[in-house]
Design a protein around this nucleic acid. Structure first.
Lengths: 336, 336
DNA sequence: GAACTTCATTAAACCGTTAGAATTGCTATT
DNA sequence: AATAGCAATTCTAACGGTTTAATGAAGTTC
């Protein structure tokens, strides 16, 4: 490992001069600076981040909290899409992206301890078990944090406009003549699921209908199988099929459609189905899926912008939802 | 920030004793150790990784090289799936996962410089532009590296058994009576695409048929649109439709199927289609897709195991393919 | 030409931890 | 009683940078 001392020796100057030259300080003469820079390049010098950070603190690194406990993997289109954009944005500014861990070697740490240990500048909470005891400690620590899609108290949140999306979906169904619209809610421990459910109730009521609790079922998870099960439950607890189903996610909607097919119903002829997310392949399913499209790019970018602003103290910590990202209704074949 | 000095002061001992106690050295009496540990906990002590690593080197952190240049995002099911498993495996061992970057603050670095700067223990190359000038420097540096799916010279590679998969797909088609089997190859700058193409040619020949170059087209990318375009090209350069199409990826296959539909053909009645990957939603498309399933979990885990072994010097650097992960043929509706 | 600036350079302290050498105090051995 | 042996503890020097105060040389001003 080449150090600034090695360079100093060859250059015939003090190590502090080398340090200053490498940091482009104006306390070093132009000539010296050039000489030292050339030497550094020639000798293959690379600074040591640990030595530097020991003194200077800010680490230029951002932690991603991505808890696997929820059984939502990185494969999940929404989160990986958001992460992708987030990463691109902050990396362009010179930040490094690293996953928050709970271990260092054999030693176990809490999230907060790990962040302190690593001198993390800020954290993006992507998925997390809301009941995790270590979470509160982190969110209250004062470390800059933003979150996406989660309803964490006191954490600045970037989230899709679930109310707008729900309204658009339902109003479209009504426009097309649907009177009995069911809702397969997402797991209600998820914040977005509660917003979509709330939006459903509000819209139904505002449109002059009554909310019928039998038309609401909760999916155990956001996935395909939960959608299937939820649909069976829905069919069981109603005498006749609703005109349309508004599902809290595309995966749920797809599961429901398959279950409907298996029961001998036709989508959209017998019942219309709308999803939420607009994951890529909903274009290719049969029928292709009408859905509320989430703007993953914008969510990722907005989360990044907000976090950077917090790190640079350009903005105050505004707890709660700081940005509602607009959604879009994509009309395809699963609705008539 | 609480330091070992603060603890030492309260404990009435030397800082080195604290350090040793925290590291569970047997040079410290049991009583002292307990006292210091209790104090550390009470005072909320968290070690400083920079100070520690400055002295001890090995960083317990693994870099992921994930180049966005290729327009393959994290959303790509294959890579995110592999990453997911890899991450789970190494994190359980106490390693941290961080994305290799090219910048630190305002300063630009090469991949290798960044890894040295950060004291990275090892690197997983997920996606990378093979022609990147900075890549060679990294792969030749001696830093432990493994890669997945890429054909990088001198880098230990974990890869699906593309030959086996291709053989299984083609033999199944032949078994079902197909005589003219076309191949939509992936972009041939990708290593897997070349293997699948080679496997195609070999299997066709071994089965006593002639390889017909008109039955081979190269998709520009691994995605849906490229599949669509490739299919149009295929139709254009042949007088009659082949019996079956073996596509180098599911996305390509799905694109091809849609294009076929638009041309008025029926899958699988007029032509069978087989994909490669087994991405989740191929189950829900219409027709659902027959495909060669890649074992993402095993690839991720094997990559992790191998990298850890390299880091611990339990194995030598074996350039080239160190593990071919078995694939599986999933038969669904797109083949007759 | 003495006093004062200005600028480039250096010495030294510091960041928080580890690790090996040196020291202390105690017990066992002869 | 002197000495060796040992465990527990302390001292000290790294690790590789940054930063502040001190130094020295050259230039300016009156």
């Amino acid at each position: 490992m080449v150090t600034i001392y090695d360079i100093a020796k060859r250059a015939g100057c003090a190590s502090s001069t080398v340090s200053k030259a490498l940091n482009n300080s104006n306390q070093v003469s132009k000539k010296r600076k050039e000489e030292i820079l050339a030497l550094a390049k020639e000798m293959g010098y690379v600074p040591n981040s640990n030595a530097r950070l020991l003194k200077t603190k800010n680490s230029w690194s951002i932690g991603i909290l991505f808890s696997e406990d929820l059984n939502i993997g990185l494969e999940h289109h929404f989160f990986s899409g958001v992460l992708q954009e987030f990463k691109a944005y902050v990396e362009a500014l010179g930040y490094e992206v690293t996953f928050v861990s709970k271990k260092v070697g054999a030693q176990s740490l809490t999230y907060l301890e790990w962040c302190k240990y690593k001198n993390i500048d800020g954290v993006l909470i992507l998925t997390v078990d809301v009941d995790d005891v270590n979470l509160k400690e982190l969110t209250e620590s004062g470390i800059p944090i933003v979150t996406v899609d989660n309803g964490l108290i006191n954490v600045p949140t970037i989230i899709s406009d679930n109310f707008q999306g729900t309204r658009m979906a339902l109003e479209y169904l009504m426009l097309k003549g649907a009177k009995h619209i069911a809702h397969i809610a997402g797991p209600l421990r998820s914040f977005s699921a509660t917003e979509r459910l709330q939006g459903y109730k509000e819209t139904i009521e505002k449109s002059g209908f009554m909310v019928d609790d039998n038309l609401i079922v909760e999916a155990y998870n956001y996935d395909y199988n939960s959608g299937k099960n939820a649909l069976l439950q829905l069919v069981k607890q109603n005498k006749k099929l609703p005109d349309a189903i508004y599902a809290a996610s595309d995966d749920i909607a797809l599961g429901a459609i398959i279950a409907l097919k298996e029961l001998g119903y036709k989508v959209p002829n017998d019942v219309s189905v709308i999803g939420f997310d607009n994951i890529e392949l909903t274009r290719y399913t049969s029928p292709s899926l009408t859905t509320v499209s989430q703007n993953k790019m914008m969510i990722g970018t907005e989360a990044a912008k907000h976090l950077i602003a917090l790190i640079n103290e350009e903005t105050n910590i505004a707890p709660g939802i700081v940005k509602r990202v607009p959604v879009e209704l994509i009309i395809r074949e699963s609705t008539k």
